[in-house]
Amino acid sequence: MNVLSSPSAHLRRRQAIAKWFRRICRFMSYLLVGIVCYLLWDVISDGWHWLSWDFFQNYASRMPAKSGVRAAISGSIWVMAITIIFAVPVGIAAATYLEELMEQSRLKQFISLNIQNLAGVPSIVYGILGLTVFVRFLGFGGSVLSGGLTLGLLILPIIIIATRESLRSVPQTVRQAAMALGATKWQTVRCYVLPTSFSGILTGIILAISRAVGETAPLILVGAVAYIRYVPENPLDAYTTLPIQIYNWVGKPKAEFHELAASGIIVLLSLMFLTNLCAIILRHKKQRTYV
């Protein structure tokens, strides 16, 4: 009898286990997609009919029909602008120093460990820090500036870690090639290491930003106001943001406000989707240019 024609019971059992493993993994993946789809459907079916040009033009109001996200969107954009202006240069500079320039030492290990830890600190803690430092000590009050800087601190560790990962992925041979030509460390990093890791850094930044844009808790602490009937005009103005507006609407008794919250969520999700899309496009473009 041919050895290949009759599989043993043992083999059949192994194959059965493999099949079940595959089924369970597939079920888990589809379950996840299913949950996300259900959430999206729930939000869109609730909030869809409130989405109109007026919804983007109106400020918050006591009457659902006159409510809108104008102040919230502009507040979110203001806060994000300050977050980016603060966190991106600081984050890239710190990561470059730690990864490219700093000598191996105990201090470096200590700093690296602490940055890892900071990335895991709950956002409310950053809110308390922002309240103490920016709102009270530096006297910025409940302003766009306080909110932006607080969120900047929140995403700084994420940007530093992503940038370091990305710098580390640049092959050592590139640095050696430049240094062997009589380049200084700065010339090497600026001309080759940073441009080569650009797409990775950018992806990290955009992921960090999409986390910051959805943060609510720290902003409540540093004094974002829910009811605002104007667009912030300078960094010391009061503000509200999309998640704060959503949070506020959800807490109201009228059912219409709950639907408005769903509309707000649609706007917030679209915003995040757009930033992520930008990240994907930019990364794709850069990858074609390098190597």
Binding site: P171, T173, V174, Q176, A177, A178, A180, C191, Y192, P195, T196, Y290, V291
Partner: peptide, 8 residues
């Protein structure tokens, strides 16, 4: 170098 390493 041992491995060709053009600059990117």
């Amino acid at each position: 170098f041992q491995k060709p390493n053009p600059l990117p």
